[in-house]
């Protein structure tokens, strides 16, 4: 038995390295100032998928993401590492989705992909940290879920069960679950393998439809246009809401029960503070003061 694996991934702004220019005057985020990256825990998930593919030859790994045209970037990153096919779910109708509407859209796309044994993604994305999309996709598809996974320990093809080591509060547990299921992987799991040089050569010109359109703006000719006819795998699949038969009332802002009421770039009430230097004198004075008012000692 070979396995059919779907990896869920998100392109995210790199919120870990937010500089001072990342916030606009009005307190909103200047997304342009942040690099877009492959969500880190989704890379941990991809590695678990690729390990299964190594262990069960003939298995296929599909990478599914939702986002704007430029999110095709992470499909290429997946192909460079051993993914067999990528799907970009992209439509204005998906914009403004909260986790519920996101899960709905992903679930419709997974149904379109059809045949699957394991759906696997990162525990959470660094731009929201909610950890909600995995369990919600599982619920939408009526599948069991195993979250906070550290490692897939075993997969029994005959009886179609998977054994997974996962984190719980203050410890770990091992669970046995039936296939198909949804798994979300913790950031402490094995890191993703690097790009494979041969695969980079093979896929470096792979493009999504929106990326091609952007290159052909103002009548410019698409570079290496012939390649996309002779090598169909260079055309990355893009799906709209209509392509996956999505109910528009459940997509994007419409399908999101949660609304952002206000967003504030909060400034804390500045306390009156004592400013010191790192000199011996100042530090000694500080320590003596803390000792005398019994804060320390």
């Amino acid at each position: 038995m070979s396995l059919k694996i779907v990896v869920l991934a998100k392109q995210v702004p790199d919120t870990r390295n937010v500089g001072k220019d990342a916030m606009k005057e009005d307190g909103t985020i200047n997304r342009a100032a942040l690099p877009a990256i492959f969500n880190p825990e989704d890379l941990n998930a991809l590695e678990q998928a690729l390990k299964l593919k190594d262990a069960f030859p003939g298995s296929t790994v599909s990478l599914l993401t939702m986002g704007p045209g430029r999110a095709a970037e992470i499909l290429r990153e997946g192909l460079y590492r051993g993914v067999d096919q990528g799907f970009l779910l992209t439509d204005r109708a998906f914009a403004g989705a909260d986790t519920l509407a996101t899960s709905y859209a992903l679930a419709t796309a997974i149904r379109k992909i059809g045949d699957f044994d394991i759906i696997i993604g990162g525990r959470q994305a660094i731009d929201g940290d909610t950890a909600q999309v995995g369990p919600q996709v599982a619920e939408k598809l009526g599948l069991p879920q195993v979250t906070y996974a550290e490692e897939i320990l075993n997969l029994d093809k005959k009886i179609r069960t998977i054994t997974i080591l996962r984190h719980i509060d203050g410890g770990v547990e091992t669970v046995e679950a039936p296939l198909p299921l949804v798994v979300t992987v913790n950031g402490s799991a094995a890191p993703c393998r690097p790009r494979n040089a041969k695969l980079v050569m093979k896929y470096k010109r792979a493009l999504g439809a929106q990326e091609k359109a952007a290159l052909m703006q103002n009548g410019a000719e698409l570079p290496y246009a012939d390649l996309y006819e002779t090598r169909p795998y260079l055309n990355l699949t893009e799906w709209s809401a209509a392509d996956v038969d999505a109910d528009l009332d459940q997509c994007g802002l419409n399908g999101s029960p949660t609304k952002v009421k206000t967003v504030m770039n909060i400034s804390f009430q500045a306390k009156e503070n004592k400013s010191l230097t790192g000199s011996d004198n100042d530090v000694e004075e500080l320590v003596v003061e803390l000792l005398s008012n019994h804060t320390i000692g």
Binding site: F268, Q269, A270, K271, L276, T277, G278, D280, D282, I296
Partner: peptide, 29 residues
């Protein structure tokens, strides 16, 4: 930004200030 909520702000290198704190704590405690 953290200085806005601080009661004491020590402007200096941690690797210089912390050893001094240890030294003077030992001396005075």
């Amino acid at each position: 930004p953290i200085n806005a909520v601080a009661d004491y702000v020590v402007v200096g290198k941690v690797e210089e200030v912390v050893p001094k704190m240890i030294k003077y704590y030992k001396a005075h405690s």
